[in-house]
Amino acid sequence: MAMLSVQDLHVSYGAIKAVRGISFEINEGEIVTLIGANGAGKSTTLNTVAGLLKPESGTIEFDGASIAGVQAHKVVQRGLALCPEGRRVFTQMSVAENLEMGGYTRSDAENRETLERVYDHFPRLKERRGQVAGTLSGGEQQMLAMGRALMSRPRLLMLDEPSMGLAPILVEEIFSIIKQLNESGTTVLLVEQNANMALSIADRAYVLETGTIKKTGTGAELLVDDDVRKAYLGG
């Protein structure tokens, strides 16, 4: 059984239909990526799964239980965390406080343990734990946003555009950390505009276009797919 199963999902902002009947699945242990142009409905999909938006119709099942329309703060408790687009760290709080907020649904004892693991993945966050998050560089803020999401001990981690606005070297670093996280047992749903990077680490991928799924396959297949190459990989 798939860990996350989304069937015929429709989401609208007022009169604008952002997602029109998409279906996809993620199995435990996979890295799955949704790629597509701006406005294809990738972020809307993640935000809906996370509970920030309400679906118009369709089903979202996590571990076999419906989470469609469940409020965001309750979705986290089920083991599903979203690291949102634009990072959205709490800029006026310290790095440590941001991480503490990430572990809001967990006990202090659990948080102490998770914090060590997060600091292992992101040693830079440990160095800067007392620093106000707003003063971190873009790459550090992305690490903080990911570390913060990990603090809830998610079984499925959703990452929305983690490479956005980062220098190529940092993009490499972030992606290698995503790979590490996956290897240590976290299932990953990745939304990216940087299709090249995303496909190269993904087990499977879905190509979104104007709110519908155009294509699906393994990361390796789509990397060499002519249509995908033309549309998203610059030839």
Binding site: F90, T91, G102
Partner: peptide
Amino acid sequence: KLGKAMRAVSEDMGAARLMGIN
């Protein structure tokens, strides 16, 4: 913890929700 949650909500309600804050 509650006070920090207040500050988190004050800064970014959506992100606070994603943390599991009611």
